[in-house]
Amino acid sequence: MKITWTLQDGRTHTAEVANGTNMMEAAVANDITGVVGECGGSLSCATCHVYVADDWVGKTGEPEDFEDAMLDATEAERKDNSRLSCQIVADDSLDGLHLIVPAL
């Protein structure tokens, strides 16, 4: 499946991502500045915070309790479409997914 990030400088980056990969791993593999993934996807750090583009919000689902709590105090402002990338896993239903990296 394909995924597109809007980067911190406003440009976009599109990459092919294998099903089963989470969006933090995909971002790190593609060297997306601003998505760090310090804890390796163990839901401990919130350094992979992204915004889900409006037309994809319904498809990526709602954050679970622990993720919701982590999002409550992220460095960049929390919005209704805030998610931790590591909790969104690629599958066919997300082909074309568009994520926005929070600006500094």
Binding site: F66, A69, M70, D72, A73, E75
Partner: peptide
């Protein structure tokens, strides 16, 4: 206690 952690870190 993720909220405590996140607040504390900040």
């Amino acid at each position: 206690a993720p909220r405590d952690y996140m607040s504390g870190k900040r």
